[in-house]
Amino acid sequence: MSTIPRVSSAIPGEPAHFGSVLAHQPDIAASFFALYGRFWGSDVLSARIKEVARMRNARVTECGFCRNVRFDKAVAQGLGEAAVDDITDGYETSDRLTDAEKAALKFTDALIHDPELLNGDARAALQRHLTPAQIAELGLGVTLFLALAKALITLGLEPETMDRTVLPTPAVPEAAE
């Protein structure tokens, strides 16, 4: 896995990072950030559950950038580092994660790793804890988390080192509202 950018920055004076590289395709960038802001801005599914799924994707795909970023909305909803530390193999036994979060994690594993993991019991648990609209948002989120992690990694945009960083939760850019 390369930590040397495989594409240059499209923004003069800025190093190659996800935003500056995606700027090679302004229409893709604008539509993505509008979508991502809308997704995080929706409260159909809590930011905390979205962040739990994002953290799981970060670990499974080995996305170091994703793994070290925290979105402040989820932190404000009580997702602390002790709970994040439990989002690893064996999360089923965590006493810091809720049953709804464990069901979302099983769905996340099924989507990004093996659909067979969403067996009868796991499927029933997901449908017991989340509404169809919440599952739709979760599915959108995991799809985007997975795709972006893979794009970021294969474009060589993984940082060599990175501290844990709390960022403002993505919002819809004003121009896209």
Partner: peptide, 30 residues
């Protein structure tokens, strides 16, 4: 470079969409 960026996004999105289909996302969402 611009084409490679678009290609990377599309290939990754195509993979994720297939996985969403295999897990039965549409049916789960009603």
């Amino acid at each position: 470079e611009p084409g490679f960026v678009a290609f990377s996004v599309l290939a990754a999105l195509a993979d994720a969409e297939c996985r969403a289909a295999l897990v039965g996302l549409a049916e789960l969402a009603g």
